[in-house]
Nucleic acid binder design. Sequence first.
DNA 1: TCTTCATTTGAATATGTGTTCATATGTTAA
DNA 2: TTAACATATGAACACATATTCAAATGAAGA
Lengths: 115, 115
Amino acid sequence: MLDICKEKCVNEKKVEQTIKTLPKQEDVSQMADIFKALSDPSRLKIVLALLNREHCVCDIAVICNQTDSAISHQLRILRTLKIVKNRREGKMLYYTIDDDHVAALINMSLDHVKH
Amino acid sequence: MLDICKEKCVNEKKVEQTIKTLPKQEDVSQMADIFKALSDPSRLKIVLALLNREHCVCDIAVICNQTDSAISHQLRILRTLKIVKNRREGKMLYYTIDDDHVAALINMSLDHVKH
DNA sequence: TCTTCATTTGAATATGTGTTCATATGTTAA
DNA sequence: TTAACATATGAACACATATTCAAATGAAGA
């Protein structure tokens, strides 16, 4: 399995030891998914807005200076990842954050930006 | 500026109040950059590996089951974002994490995955 | 019912991104 | 200098993704 390594510069012990510490590939993928959700500035801004309070789609559109449609597309992605949820009130849908860890993640990245 | 809103469903007060809470656009972009760096499973795996200990490029390649070249490309991105740094030892370059917040971010997302 | 309006959806397009392959650096030892 | 090797780089490709536009839902009121 690691035979090839012997002909290369690989330090097998270090490699094996680190491999043991890695989360399952499936967990790695899920972690990446969360980060990906927050990796687009438009989507991040939506989340930041909803972190302040609930908003309907067209309010978010104004806040983010984007089309209702564009916002709706992004909200669907966030909904699929269970980062946001919505409640209907008449014609309008009010969105809120549906994930406790998101706020913590974002605050941490804000810290990072502010050195 | 917000005149258009009066003809639409927008709640100006809520919108204005939320806009005040938003970080500067530049900060939002920088936050998104960090998340983007961790949003690719291959790149995330590299960071996870380096979180355990320093490794040279070809060790990382074995750990991640990828080409030296692919790893090198990803490391450049992580280097540019100052998430990793390297030190030379002979022919080899040993990479380590160069960012205190990254570990915290990752642990938080691990929590998230594990509910 | 019909109209209006908020939101969603789908297709199209333009732009971004990860990997591969071939080639270039730069270091060590002969 | 040369050869061998670890890593980096650039171009090319295939694939993902955000936004736009047009059209479809679905709710409320006339």
